[in-house]
Amino acid sequence: MADENCTKVTQFTFLGLTEHPQLKPVLFVLFLGTYVLTLAGNLILIALIRVSPQLHTPMYFFLSNLSFLDVCYSSTISPKMLLDLPAKTKVISFAGCLTQLYFYAVFATAEVYVLAAMAYDRYVAISKPLLYEVFMSPGVCMSLVAGSYLAGLLNAIVHTAALLRLSFCGPLVINNFYCDGPPLFVVASTDTRLNEGLMFAFVGFNMMTTNLLILTSYTCIAVAVGRMGSAAGRRKACSTCASHLAAVIIFYVCGAFNYMQHSSSNSLESKKIASIFYTIVVPMLNPMIYSLRNKEVKHALSSFIRKKTYF
């Protein structure tokens, strides 16, 4: 009966990051700079991998896809958040909210699987170097990336379709800075147990599957590194894996904290902080983590700059 008294939802209102006027300009400048760095770092990395023949390897193929996903899912969140920061009323249409949630789910889920594919690539490179070209052929690499995007599409379709069955009565105020499942469940007027169950099942499956692959890969890598006779080889392998592992830990911990607990108004503030890390900070850090400490990328960048300067 409650559904009959609900008017048709046309828009939601975000509470945003803060209501303190003094903090808004500071946060706007901070997150605008972060978004610009995210776009610049990832797009430069994609372009560099494309134009540098020495970077046409499976590892950099996965890295270019990771950068593309970082640009996409950061752009799904950051522009709207930046527009809302100085605004008194932060509104988004119902269709816009579902669209934002859909594309965010596609890109974030695909990124989890690309990170897992990168762990598998490192395992093959370190544990089975002589068979690397066989195990990581162009067809295998394309299949792994295509599977990552398909997983993202499936996850997004399920959650977006499940949201359409919910009814929303006033006040339609979302305690977040973007549309996501848990904050929407809090303001829904109908039973959200199915939605929460689907989110727990799908997010849990995605994280367990990719975590299992990553942990298995790194266990095998640790065994292979332990058998290496060269100290230089061990250092190189550990350096490469440490960068990937750092990005994985940040992304997975924040994602698990946000999605693998019950949705309630009391937990949304802490979830909001976690969301800032994996929607805004992590996409900026990834190109730094994977390129600034990578000699091959540095060499390709310096060669590219020398060629442009010469011409």
Results as ranks from 00 to 15, higher is better:
residue 37 L to F: 08
residue 269 E to C: 08
residue 275 S to C: 13
residue 89 T to D: 15
residue 88 K to E: 15
residue 303 S to D: 15
residue 36 V to W: 12
residue 307 K to T: 12
residue 79 P to E: 11
residue 101 L to C: 04
residue 76 T to Y: 01
residue 167 S to W: 04
residue 41 G to L: 03
residue 275 S to Q: 12
residue 122 R to P: 06
residue 173 V to I: 15
residue 103 F to S: 06
residue 98 L to W: 02
residue 248 V to K: 00
residue 125 A to E: 15
residue 307 K to E: 15
residue 66 L to F: 05
residue 117 A to F: 03
residue 145 V to R: 06
residue 71 V to A: 02
residue 275 S to L: 13
residue 45 L to K: 01
residue 234 R to C: 12
residue 114 V to N: 01
residue 298 K to P: 03
residue 54 Q to H: 04
residue 283 P to V: 04
residue 177 F to I: 04
residue 220 C to P: 00
residue 174 I to H: 09
residue 216 T to C: 11
residue 222 A to K: 01
residue 34 T to L: 14
residue 174 I to P: 01
residue 177 F to H: 00
residue 182 P to G: 02
residue 102 Y to R: 08
residue 238 C to I: 15
residue 292 L to H: 03
residue 192 T to R: 01
residue 105 A to L: 15
residue 259 Y to S: 03
residue 83 L to G: 10
residue 128 K to G: 00
residue 126 I to P: 01
residue 291 S to R: 06
residue 147 G to S: 08
residue 123 Y to D: 12
residue 253 V to R: 03
residue 223 V to Q: 11
residue 98 L to T: 07
residue 263 S to I: 04
residue 149 Y to Q: 04
residue 126 I to T: 13
residue 118 M to K: 00
residue 178 Y to K: 00
residue 4 E to D: 13
residue 61 F to D: 12
residue 258 N to S: 14
residue 70 D to I: 08
residue 272 K to W: 01
residue 162 A to P: 12
residue 65 N to G: 07
residue 266 N to Q: 12
residue 41 G to F: 00
residue 94 F to P: 01
residue 103 F to Q: 03
residue 55 L to W: 03
residue 233 G to N: 10
residue 107 F to H: 02
residue 216 T to A: 08
residue 49 I to R: 02
residue 188 A to M: 05
residue 291 S to F: 02
residue 140 V to S: 08
residue 222 A to Y: 02
residue 37 L to R: 00
residue 235 R to D: 10
residue 137 S to E: 10
residue 285 L to V: 09
residue 232 A to Q: 14
residue 56 H to G: 11
residue 102 Y to F: 15
residue 107 F to C: 09
residue 160 T to Y: 05
residue 235 R to S: 10
residue 101 L to D: 05
residue 79 P to L: 04
residue 194 L to E: 14
residue 238 C to A: 13
residue 147 G to I: 00
residue 290 Y to L: 09
residue 104 Y to S: 09
residue 74 S to R: 01
residue 196 E to G: 11
residue 180 D to E: 14
residue 112 V to A: 03
